[in-house]
Design a binder for these strands. Structure first.
Lengths: 206, 206
DNA sequence: AGTTGTGAACTCGTTCACAGCA
DNA sequence: TGCTGTGAACGAGTTCACAACT
């Protein structure tokens, strides 16, 4: 909207875009401290700044990507970095063939130097794009190096100490959500119960 | 658990693994039609089958991946396919350099043949891994070709007709969730209100 | 007139707690 | 005895509806 030169927007317009109820949207934004103007709505640029601050996007967040395969490479070059202070500061991989090569202007470190590199660059966020079998051990090493936030693309539930936040991005889980919706149209019948049940007794006080 | 030879599991054990309350887990599973045994818990293998059926993972789900860059390639070869009847049936790209090459045993089609290929393979799910600017048009073409479920990796909110389910996977959104948690420790203070407020007037009828 | 911010009502998912069954 | 399935209590988040303000 900033790009399009829009300077005010109402809760209703925003709500349509994100697909929620206007009241919900207003209540959520009011948590940021009431930045709308009655009668004309929210000033787009100011709102953007406020939301950015709430998400702490105005800081610099150096990120390490462990695992420079296709996925790691895709993320390192992705449009997602750049927006919001995220910055690929360290890349690491076991494979000697990729160690030393550059991806998006960052040289790939050998896995042995993972901890050192993370500490040097004050890494706050670790992204794991290794094969599944390596992910738990990588997570442990990241945590040992002081990383407290992990984004894991390997299809493995990481076990981590409390205080460490993990987000899981799992292709097959996403696909399953799609097939789940597809196979159960909204308003369709509930899943078949296994046992025959006696017709529901109404048990309401008269 | 099946692999480890575990044959029964209680709601409490499962709840610990997934990090929810045992009662919640039982209620959720009971939607599948009561497959636990009182006294001994759920039979692992049977439960797996039931959950699989509920998620419609026992069917074959041919998938198209549009955009065979690093990300598309990573997904095509990913461990996520194979588990649950997902199968990469079509790959498509605009880039003549990749058209005709094989990724994971599937030849890349030119984008012009997208619709034809989707119809030929009875595609149910489309995965969009193109650059952001291409994603809306790809989505429209997929929908025209009969695809009703879309998994979009481009950082763009797709607008689609009702009846089409879209899931968005967005790196920068995931990172922002991490920084949000990081900058607001649980139990920490709420976000600062902007304006000084008069002490709250109680306005309650006496 | 138009739109926010928010008490109050409401909704729906979560959790308790226990009867019922293996 | 152990654990499920579920009615009932609970509570967090959603929505209504309107006073307050521009």
């Amino acid at each position: 909207m900033v790009e399009r030169g829009v300077d005010h927007v109402s809760s209703t317009e925003l709500a349509v875009v994100v697909g929620v109820n206007p009241a919900t949207l207003r209540r959520d934004l009011s948590q940021l401290g009431s930045y709308g103007t009655r009668g004309s709505g929210y000033e787009v640029e100011r709102l953007l700044g406020q939301v950015g601050r709430a998400l702490a996007v105005d800081r610099d967040w150096p990120v390490v990507i462990v695992g420079v395969g296709n996925l790691g490479r895709a993320l390192a070059r992705s449009e997602g970095f750049g927006s919001g202070g995220f910055r690929v500061a360290v890349l690491a991989d076991v494979n000697p063939a990729v160690v030393g090569t550059e991806v998006g202007g960052v040289a790939v470190e050998p896995l042995e130097r993972l901890e050192a590199a993370c500490q040097r660059e004050q890494i706050a966020i670790g992204v794991i794009t290794t094969p599944a079998r390596a992910s738990q051990s990588v997570a442990e090493r990241l945590i040992a190096a002081g990383v407290r936030s992990i984004l894991n693309f390997a299809p493995v539930v990481l076990s981590v100490p409390s205080g460490v936040v993990v987000r899981q991005v799992d292709l097959s889980a996403e696909l399953q959500v799609l097939t789940f919706y597809r196979s159960r149209p909204p308003g369709g019948p509930p899943i078949q119960k296994a046992r025959a049940k006696a017709p529901k007794q109404t048990r309401r006080s008269p």
